[in-house]
Design a protein around this nucleic acid. Structure first.
Length: 277
DNA sequence: CTTATTTGACCAAT
DNA sequence: ATTGGTCAAATAAG
C-alpha cells in the first residue's frame, strides 16, 4: 500500500473514532456538552476534507504515472496541468550559514540533484502540508555559483494551505550591525522590464513580501548604469576574508539574458573559484 | 515513538 | 544516453 493510501485509511479511522465519540455523547448526554459535540462534528468534517484531498492527490499521481502518455487526450490535460512558476533570487546577508529557506512557510525537503553546469546542487522542497491539506506548493533552491550567499529560488504552484505561518518563532536573529548593512543594500528591479505586466504585478508583491520576511534583498541583473560602477567596485574588493561583510548581490543568471552576466563573470573571474564554503 | 533529511533508484523528457 | 524531477528506504533528529 502506498504511503498516501495508508494516510487515507488512517484519516478514515480517525474519523470513525470521532464519530464513535459523538455517538457516545448522544447516548450519555449528561457526560457531554453541546460544545464538545460541535467540536467533534467539525473534526469529523475536517477528516472528510483531508481524506478527499488525499484521494485527489493520489489519483492525480496514479493518473500521471500509468496513463499519461498513451492516451491521446493527455495533450489537453497536460496543457491544463501547466504549472505556475516564479523565480526569485534571494541573498542572505548574514554571511553565515543561515537558512535562506525560511520564507515563513513550512517546507520539507524531498530531493537534491546535482545540476549539470552548476557547482552547487539543487534542493527540492514541498509544502509540509501536502498530505494533510493537499497543498501542492513546491520550491527549488540552488546556491548561486557566483555568490555563495545568494540563492536562486523557484516557486512552483502557490500555497493552498492558508495557515498563517509562525514567522515570529523562527525569525532569524539579525544583529543590529547586520540589519544596518542590509538597510544600506539596494534592490534592483530591472528584471521587471523583461516581464509581462501580470507577472510584474505578482512579482513585485511577492518580492516585497519575501523581502520583509527574509530581511534580505534581491538584486537582479543590472544594466550598465550608475549603480554598476559602484558595485563593480564592491565585487572587486570581495575576498574570502571580506566576504562576510554583509554585502550581498545577485545576478540574474539566465540562458536568455546573459549579456551582462558574461561581463560580470569576467570581472569576477579571479574571485569566483575560491572555495570558501 | 514521530517527523525530517539524505541519497540512490526510478521515471519521463530530450 | 543524459538530464532534471520525484520517490521512498534508510537514517538522523527531536
Amino acid at each position: 500500500m502506498l504511503m498516501e493510501e495508508k494516510l487515507v485509511v488512517k484519516e478514515l479511522e480517525k474519523g470513525k473514532e470521532l464519530a464513535n465519540q459523538l455517538m457516545n455523547n448522544f447516548k450519555n448526554p449528561s457526560s457531554s456538552s453541546k460544545d464538545s459535540n460541535e467540536v467533534l462534528i467539525s473534526e469529523i468534517l475536517r477528516c472528510f476534507e483531508n481524506t478527499i484531498a488525499r484521494m485527489m492527490s493520489l489519483e492525480k499521481k496514479t493518473l500521471k504515472r500509468s496513463h499519461e502518455r498513451s492516451n491521446q487526450s493527455n495533450k489537453k490535460s497536460r496543457m491544463l496541468e501547466k504549472k505556475k512558476t516564479e523565480n526569485v533570487k534571494i541573498c542572505v546577508g548574514t554571511g553565515q550559514e543561515g537558512t535562506p529557506l525560511d520564507d515563513g512557510h513550512c517546507w520539507r525537503k524531498y530531493g537534491q540533484k546535482d545540476i549539470h553546469g552548476s557547482k552547487n546542487p539543487r534542493g527540492y522542497y514541498r509544502c509540509t502540508h501536502r498530505f494533510t491539506r493537499g497543498c501542492l506548493a513546491v520550491k527549488q533552491v540552488q546556491k548561486s555559483d557566483i555568490n555563495p550567499m545568494c540563492y536562486e529560488v523557484k516557486y512552483v504552484e502557490s500555497h493552498t494551505c492558508d495557515i498563517t505561518p509562525s514567522t515570529t518563532k523562527h525569525s532569524l536573529p539579525v544583529s543590529q550591525e547586520e540589519e544596518r548593512k542590509l538597510h544600506d543594500a539596494k534592490q534592483c528591479e530591472d528584471t521587471m522590464k523583461h516581464m509581462k505586466p501580470e507577472e510584474l504585478r505578482l512579482s513585485i508583491e511577492d518580492l516585497d513580501y519575501k523581502k520583509d520576511i527574509f530581511r534580505t534583498f534581491s538584486f537582479s541583473n543590472p544594466e550598465m548604469d550608475d549603480d554598476f560602477v559602484e558595485w563593480k567596485d564592491l565585487m572587486e574588493n570581495l575576498s574570502p576574508t571580506t566576504s562576510e561583510s554583509g554585502i550581498t548581490n545577485e545576478f540574474h543568471i539566465s540562458p536568455t539574458d546573459d549579456s551582462c552576466f558574461s561581463s560580470l563573470e569576467n570581472i569576477l573571474g579571479s574571485t569566483q573559484d575560491l572555495s570558501w564554503m
